[in-house]
């Protein structure tokens, strides 16, 4: 899937919100990452227009901002879900069947790691050791850790997050990077 081209119209909301974020920073290149982090937090991803605005603001080529935005794992170019589910796939969790959790999540949410549900509620990421091997396998939703997770438990956990199973057709995820 290609991202929309430069001719797209900008979303006025995003432009306004980004503008407000940028105003909080001096016009110096070293704040680029901090700006991007704020934007990620605000929109759950880095919209193209935000990158263009940063480039204008700092008088830098867009390529510089794009390079940074694609380099860091914490930044994504496609919208992430409201809730980010991290499945630990470090050695301990891997041995304790983290893959089964990924499979179970696929049955529940119809998305795989790297994807976001169509309603924008959830996205899944596979991550490396989270430093809690004693309670492997581990998943983290937003900031909350869940240990010794089993497929059955997973269903209960997910149910706590909003209208997770409200609609039956949570089909076809959208990939993000």
């Amino acid at each position: 899937m290609t991202l929309s081209s430069g001719m797209q119209h900008r979303s006025p909301d995003r432009v306004a919100v980004t503008g407000r974020i940028l105003e909080g920073y001096p016009k110096e290149q070293r704040y680029t990452l901090a700006m991007l982090q704020d934007i990620q937090k605000e929109f759950q991803f880095i919209p193209r227009e935000s990158m263009e605005l940063i480039a204008d603001y700092l008088e830098l080529p867009l390529s510089k901002i794009y390079s940074l935005a694609t380099f860091y794992k914490a930044l994504s170019l496609r919208p992430k879900g409201k809730h980010v589910i991290k499945i630990c796939d470090g050695t301990a969790c891997h041995i304790r069947s983290s893959q089964m959790l990924a499979n179970e999540l696929y049955t529940l949410l119809k998305i795989r790691p790297g994807e976001t549900t169509e309603d924008g509620q959830f996205s899944i990421e596979m991550v490396n050791c989270l430093g809690a091997c004693a309670i492997a396998p581990v998943i983290v939703i937003d900031e909350t850790f869940y240990g010794k997770v089993t497929p059955a438990k997973l269903q209960e956990i997910i149910a706590q997050y909003g209208d997770a199973f409200g609609q039956s057709d949570r089909s076809g995820g959208v990939a993000h990077e």
Binding site: L60, S63, K64, S67, T70, F71, E177
Partner: peptide
């Protein structure tokens, strides 16, 4: 001074 290309991803 063009800065048209850069390294992308990692």
């Amino acid at each position: 001074g063009a800065g048209a290309i850069s390294t992308v991803h990692r």
